[in-house]
């Protein structure tokens, strides 16, 4: 089975472990394996803007350099924040000579002092952005092909209406990310179609859910999520599909606060795209981590004839 370098990131390692597990299950079914890096650190979640903050580039650069040094040229991530940070860091290293030199000067200086890395006596080689950072969904679309997914379905999600939610950092800034059209994307719609479900059109799919404001200004995030979810629900969606742990948290857990603030609100179940994928590929429902969801997903599972098995326990 083909092994592809995989950077899970801190959220998938712990609080969003159901995203990680469903992704691993699904990819095995599709004939390749996510090969977690031997050593990795937090990527820093947000890339720095100004040249002054070069320190914020060191962690993602070190991760990318380790991938290059292990002889691989593709790195898969799933978390949108990690994807954005790693890809943009790679972009600045590739396109900006000053950044490249400064980052490599730091990397060359600090590596031997890290006690969790084995001492490396091989010849130093500057990291110049050789690794290609790709999102798992991008890999499914471009390398594997959505046709292959459509052809391997064991449990097609026929009859489900699913609203794609892109959020912000998966697509933007588009000149550096170049995953899809930032205003009229179709990568998740096509993915939903490949699972034999129907994508729902609604206007808020690329609108921000509040991101980290969920911590500093939860009320603002509540208002944004209310707008997004109500719009999806009114357009006929049975569920919303996301790929980012923070989008998931905001859209799912925040429904508690939304229900308290808006009397007309009706809950909408939220899924990770990997959960839908592995369900459709026939992975057991009990492995999807649905107990971590705030909103009950049973109505959606009933529609496609999947038993949650909750009654058995």
């Amino acid at each position: 089975m083909a092994k592809i370098a995989y950077y899970p990131g801190c959220a998938l390692n712990e609080r969003s472990s159901h995203l990680d597990r469903s992704a691993r299950d699904a990819t095995v079914k599709l004939g390749f394996e996510l090969d977690e890096l031997d050593t990795w650190t937090c990527c820093g979640a947000v890339p720095p803007v100004s040249e002054e903050r070069v320190m914020n580039l060191i962690a993602p650069s070190r991760i990318l350099k380790d991938v290059r040094d292990s002889g691989r040229d593709i790195l898969i991530t799933i978390c949108d924040f990690c994807y954005n940070t790693l890809k943009r860091t790679n972009y600045s290293i590739k396109s900006d000579e000053i950044t490249r030199k400064r980052v490599n000067a730091f990397l060359a200086d600090d590596t031997p002092e890290r006690d969790y890395l084995e001492k490396d006596d091989s010849l130093w080689e500057d990291y110049e952005g050789e690794v290609k950072v790709i999102h798992l969904m991008e890999y499914l679309r471009d390398e594997l092909g959505y046709d292959k997914i459509a052809g391997s379905l064991e449990k097609p999600l026929k009859g489900l209406k699913i609203a794609p939610y892109y959020g912000c950092v998966m697509l933007r800034p588009q000149n550096e990310i170049q995953l899809d059209d930032p205003e009229n994307p179709s990568i998740i719609e096509d993915f939903i179609t490949a699972l034999d479900a129907r994508p729902v059109k609604y206007p808020y799919r690329t609108e921000c859910c509040g991101s980290y404001l969920s911590v500093s200004n939860p009320d603002a995030s509540t208002r944004l999520c209310y707008r997004i979810l109500t719009s999806a629900r009114n357009s006929g969606a049975d569920a919303v599909v996301v790929s980012c742990p923070l989008c998931f948290y905001n859209l799912d857990s925040r429904q508690k606060a939304i229900t308290e603030a808006y009397s007309d609100f009706k809950p909408v179940p939220i899924f990770y795209f990997t959960q839908l994928l592995s369900l459709a590929l026939g992975v057991d429902c009990g492995r999807q981590g649905f107990e971590k969801h705030y909103v009950d997903v049973t109505p959606v599972l009933d529609k496609i004839g999947v038993s949650t098995g909750k009654g058995d326990e």
């Binding site: 801190c10 959220a11 609080r15 979640a45 924040f81 969920s214 998931f248």
Partner: peptide
């Protein structure tokens, strides 16, 4: 909150 939110 997932870690990207806290770090971010």
């Amino acid at each position: 909150v997932p870690q990207p939110g806290l770090v971010g």
